[in-house]
Nucleic acid binder design. Structure first.
Lengths: 129, 129
DNA sequence: CAACTCATACGATAATCATCGTATTACGAT
DNA sequence: ATCGTAATACGATGATTATCGTATGAGTTG
């Protein structure tokens, strides 16, 4: 296979906005969807690089692809190919530069809301007393 | 005018979510629209109480009403009647409790983006030298 | 009461978007 | 080369939404 041996040759070019092109509207819109917010939370939750398949999303694969693209085009994640898989990682630094504190505030708010929901509905399979 | 003299008698009941009912998704979605973000920025920009008419929005009046309702139902603003006018104010404290730092981060990011745009296009009617 | 003003409600419309299924591409392994 | 896997592209579809114009309601002032 000649020159494809150990080098990184992306089969398809993935379009990313440059850091300076990240728009507030697009970021907020991207984060406003529950599925995409879930993806971002999972990424922030320690799994820095994950294949799309690794997310247990309640949608079909094509829909999943769509959501990853929205996140990528908004400048929230960076994606690259690793074999047939596509890895995603948060563009934490770029976001922090353009919108200081925004991502952290959103993640924290989502966490607070989740805790509150858990407290309100005490997990029937594990009811506390 | 009987009992309407100095008392507050709202002509129409305005529905507001309670602080605990404010949802992250709804807030992000509400802020993702440029017209609504403009409203929120104006409100945050010192004008704590403004009538809807006081905003110079690039949309019709009915559309304006629609956007104010979205903001209100998301829990971002509180509205009350003052005569025939309707006043709006940010629910800063409620938002800060539910989503600490979020509103501030969004406002700051919008400000940064605006400054950058202004720098990129040096205002032809007022070109600096 | 009548006129005026601010805002709403009610459709209507066009655009955006989330979702899906299926066919296809890219890559790795057999 | 053939197969399998991961993901995309391509429509298609239904839901949501941003927008508007017009008619209506509520309040103030003549």
């Amino acid at each position: 296979m000649a020159d494809t041996a150990g080098t990184r040759r992306p089969g398809r070019r993935l379009e990313h906005p440059r850091a300076g092109e990240i728009r507030v509207d697009a970021v907020l819109h991207a984060l406003a969807d529950p599925v995409r917010l879930r993806i971002v939370r999972d990424l922030a939750d320690g799994h820095e690089d994950m294949a799309c398949i690794a997310f247990a999303l309640p949608v079909s694969k094509s829909t999943s692809t769509h959501h990853f693209r929205v996140l990528r085009e908004a400048g929230i994640i960076r994606q690259y190919y690793e074999g047939t898989s596509r890895m995603s990682r948060l563009r934490t630094e770029d976001l922090e530069t353009r919108m200081p504190g925004l991502l952290g505030a959103v993640l924290n708010a989502a966490l607070l809301a989740e805790r509150e929901d858990a407290a309100a509905v005490p997990a029937p399979s594990d009811g506390e007393r």
